[in-house]
């Protein structure tokens, strides 16, 4: 579904990402670990096409087609969806209105708001005075309406209390179509039916308790230094920190 080939990205003239290669197949969820300031958010921003992330080399393919030079909205229309860490405040635009925009006016706003505990926020300005957790729920509510094929989440659990991490996780699963456990279907069949994919940046790994991931990568100094089983890598990072990654990268 998403393929990055030798992607290098600069921000304000400074090279942040170097020669990144990544392949996310349909139905797969990948997580991205890594210390602060190592380029994880840059990667998501560049995939979405935000202007401040200048692609200096390499290519981005989505569903088999190159999207390296497409506009942000064209990428969104093709099925990319993103939750950035610090979205802007849009005072005069209500949450209800932006959810309608995301769902192209064909969406049951109240139903989705109920799922994300956002009913009482629907008529407030987008992110206007929202707490960290409220921002995440608002973003996921929008993404539930948008229904992207590739869901990119930048630290979905940061600033969210324990009670709401479950809400965030369920919302992510809803978008990834992983929540419905239909009777009589084998695990294998459930897996093969999945076609929505995800790329999730996480520091703590808490989100993995709700959203199972298929593959993990560690980003260090702007490169993907190693990849592997998410749980194994997480426990390794918990035990040894990112020092091991430095060794890998070197």
């Amino acid at each position: 579904m998403l393929k990055l080939e030798n992607l290098s990205v600069a921000v304000n003239g400074r090279q942040i990402l170097h020669d990144v290669n990544l392949h996310i197949k349909p139905g797969e969820v990948h997580v991205l670990f890594g210390p602060n300031g190592t380029g994880k958010s840059t990667l998501i921003g560049a995939i979405m096409g935000f202007a401040r992330y200048k692609i200096t080399d390499g290519k981005i393919y989505f569903n088999g087609q190159e999207i390296t030079n497409l506009s942000v909205d064209e990428r969104a229309r093709r099925g990319l969806g993103v939750m950035i860490q610090r979205p802007p405040t849009l005072r005069g635009l209500s949450v209800r209105e932006i959810v309608h925009i995301c769902g192209k006016n064909d969406v049951d706003v109240e139903l989705l708001a109920d799922k994300t505990n956002m009913l009482e926020f629907l008529d407030r300005g987008v992110n206007d005075g929202f707490s960290g957790g409220e921002i995440k729920r608002s973003e996921l509510l929008q993404l539930m309406a948008q229904q992207p094929d590739l869901l990119m989440l930048d630290e979905p659990e940061s600033g969210v209390d324990i009670e709401n991490i479950a809400v965030v996780g369920e919302a992510a699963n809803y978008i990834l179509e992983r929540g419905s456990k239909k009777k009589g279907k084998s695990i294998k069949k459930c897996r093969t039916n999945r076609h929505k994919s995800g790329l999730i940046i996480t520091h703590t790994g808490h989100i993995l308790e709700y959203v199972p991931a298929d593959m993990a990568h560690v980003m260090y100094n702007g490169t993907l230094s190693c990849s592997g089983n998410p749980q194994e890598m997480l426990s390794c990072i918990h035990q040894k920190g990112y020092e091991e990654c430095i060794n890998c990268a070197e």
Binding site: M48, F50, A51, S71, V72, D73, R75, A76, R77, L80, G81, V82, I84, P87, P88, L90, I98, I101, C102, K104, Q142, Q146
Partner: peptide, 16 residues
Amino acid sequence: IAPEEIEYLMARGLNE
């Protein structure tokens, strides 16, 4: 208008 606000809505599917 902050460019971030425009891009935010473009990421939700609106053109510029």
